[in-house]
Amino acid sequence: MQNDSDRFFVLTGGPGSGKTTLITALQQAGFATSVEAGRGIIRDQSAIGGTALPWNDRPLFAELMLSWEMGSYQTAIEQTGPVFFDRGVPDTLGYLKLSGLPVAAHIRTAAMRFRYNPRVFIAPPWPDIFTQDEERKQTSDEAERTYHALAAVYTELGYELVPLPLSPVEARVGFVLAEAGLK
């Protein structure tokens, strides 16, 4: 019997590297996907005047990210077939480390318990497509530091990193499906 984690594929990397565009294309191709926690939380908190925003309260933002990612994982268990995640539980750990904030024991525990496929797709920095917007306020330098922090966290947790090519989304979809054994 296949473990759920074997069918759970994470796409991670710094902001503005094409992850969400790739996730959207995979969803349009008929695959189950998750919504990125960061953008969702920023939209929700902004809509209600909340303070759990990365520029207001980073620790609270991280706790909401963790909760969101664990919820996405639980939802995915109820689905059949492969699921592509726009980030995973370990991204919260990377965010805290990048921010220079302490990592609470429960966050480490979550990163160890909520496991994904051993091969994690990571989007390298891509300056040609990087843009800022209302939700993405990071600079390209911070995006690159985020990439390195996430690469370190996933590696420390025993995942094999599979760098995404800097290519159009259709080529990236083909690459991901081939590397995931789904093509």
Rank of each mutant, 00 (worst) to 15 (best):
P125L: 08
R113T: 13
Y159P: 03
L157T: 07
R119T: 06
P118T: 06
V173A: 01
K137S: 15
R108L: 14
E160R: 15
F121K: 03
P165S: 08
Y116N: 00
P124E: 14
E134P: 02
V169T: 09
R115V: 02
A151Q: 11
A123F: 14
G158R: 05
L157N: 05
T155W: 06
S167Q: 06
T109H: 14
P118L: 06
A123R: 08
T155A: 12
A149K: 10
R136V: 10
E134K: 13
Y159H: 01
Y147H: 11
R145P: 03
E170Q: 15
I129Q: 09
Y116H: 10
L177S: 00
P168A: 07
I129G: 11
R145E: 15
Y159E: 01
E134M: 03
I129N: 02
A171N: 07
S140A: 15
R115C: 06
E144A: 13
P124M: 00
D133W: 06
P127N: 10
A151V: 13
L177K: 00
F175E: 00
G158C: 10
F114V: 11
A143G: 06
F175P: 00
P163T: 07
A151G: 04
L161W: 09
V173S: 00
R108V: 10
L164M: 07
T139M: 13
P118D: 12
T155C: 03
R145M: 13
N117S: 11
R115H: 13
S167M: 12
T109S: 12
E135L: 15
R113H: 15
P165W: 02
M112G: 09
G174L: 02
V120D: 03
T155D: 05
P163K: 02
L157I: 04
I122N: 04
A123Y: 03
Y159T: 00
I122T: 08
T131N: 14
V162N: 06
Y159I: 03
R108Y: 11
P118S: 12
E134W: 09
F121H: 01
E144G: 14
E134V: 12
